[in-house]
Design a protein around this nucleic acid. Structure first.
Lengths: 208, 208
DNA sequence: GCGCTAACCGACTCATGTGTCGGTTAAGAA
DNA sequence: TTCTTAACCGACACATGAGTCGGTTAGCGC
């Protein structure tokens, strides 16, 4: 069920990445507790025991995948944000970057941010760390704009605003996965409409 | 560990509600797969077998709790929304109603909307039904305002906007549970700041 | 006070799932 | 070609958890 190989023996590192890849999909689809190592093994074209040749436990496997995918996300989004330009442009670029990541890696987004609390304490720590990093980055990027709104970024009110923004964006990405008809550009515009202009915007004042 | 009773025998209906109450907390805290019936039993001050005197299975118990809490939510929010007043007022009232519900029933919110996909197909159906109802209600309430923004509420773009709004609000509620210092009023104002005014708002143009 | 119902329990079966271990063999090195 | 390593597997041990069943007894109606 892997891709096409007729059950050949592979070098360790290659097998390892296949396992991680498979684990990403299965964990994202089922959640931690609901996935059996067996499923991952099958998806990786191998037996359960082989998983334990590469990872000491299910927990460590998940954490590995989590950190790997988070690194990809940070790299992807970070690489597309110049940090220059008008606040509006920066926000739009960030949204676009995030959506383009979720478009290319739907499983990664789900794995990183959908499941919140269903796993054991040790994993929870990792997950919250990732979440908090994300929040902090966005807060940093929006710092100036928040100040323009009269909010000290250190304030709880500012943090709340950031949190709302992030959750909203992520929820929108989640929605998009179920309604892929919409183009990414239009998705970004919809997000900007609310987050930048606000619902109070009068007709014919819409864009720009 | 229930509340204080020294292990007495109770009438069936009373025990049943205790079980549901206990199940709510444990499911909300641990998620479906991670909670053992044993934990619920202990929290309800009873043995596992008793749970099966009231509910045929773990799955049905969860679904019962889900629907019961959803009914409470609908009643709570519905009861506080008059449907009259300016759009701004209506939005603010809705936000306040939702936050006041989550304040009084933090477990219910988590159970209903935090865990997304970690359970079996049958439960998934129930959960998505609840979610969709919520989305539809909000879309209905915002219908006129969306039209003012030049969006037909039937449009995908409009649905996306609604989804962003809901996810953002719920994410904010989730954040609030971790930062209870902030008053509900200020929370509502923070939400309004983004959702109604938008981040583009200039300084000194802030409220109203 | 007496009996009967229903609330309650302990102990069981069975299924599933994690992690381990010793053996087998493909495939690259010498 | 032969040897050796490391990729792979099957079978096991052990834990946890869902759901069942027959028995025990508290507490209400009479």
């Amino acid at each position: 069920m892997a891709t096409k190989e007729p059950r050949k023996r592979m070098p360790g590192s290659a097998r390892r990445s296949r396992i991680v890849e498979a684990a990403l999909e299965v964990f994202a689809a089922r959640g931690y507790h609901a996935t059996a190592m067996e499923e991952i093994a099958v998806a990786a074209g191998v037996t359960r025991s082989v998983l334990y040749d590469h990872f000491p436990s299910k927990r460590v496997l998940l954490i590995t995948v989590l950190q790997e995918q988070n690194a990809r996300l940070v790299e992807h989004v970070g690489g597309r944000i110049t940090g220059s330009g008008s606040p509006e442009r920066r926000l739009r670029a960030t949204l676009d970057a995030y959506f383009s990541f979720t478009e290319a890696n739907p499983g990664a987004r789900r794995l990183l941010f959908d499941h919140t609390d269903e796993d054991d304490p040790e994993i929870k720590v990792v997950r919250w760390g990732i979440r908090e990093t994300r929040t902090r980055s966005v807060a940093a990027m929006l710092g100036p704009d928040l100040r323009r709104l009269g909010l000290d970024p250190e304030t709880e009110a500012a943090q709340a605003v950031v949190e709302l923004l992030i959750s909203g964006t992520d929820g929108l990405a989640q929605w998009w996965a179920r309604h892929p008809t919409m183009s990414r550009d239009r998705l970004v515009e919809a997000a900007m409409l609310v987050l930048w202009n606000g619902l109070s915007t009068l007709p014919e004042t819409g864009a720009r």
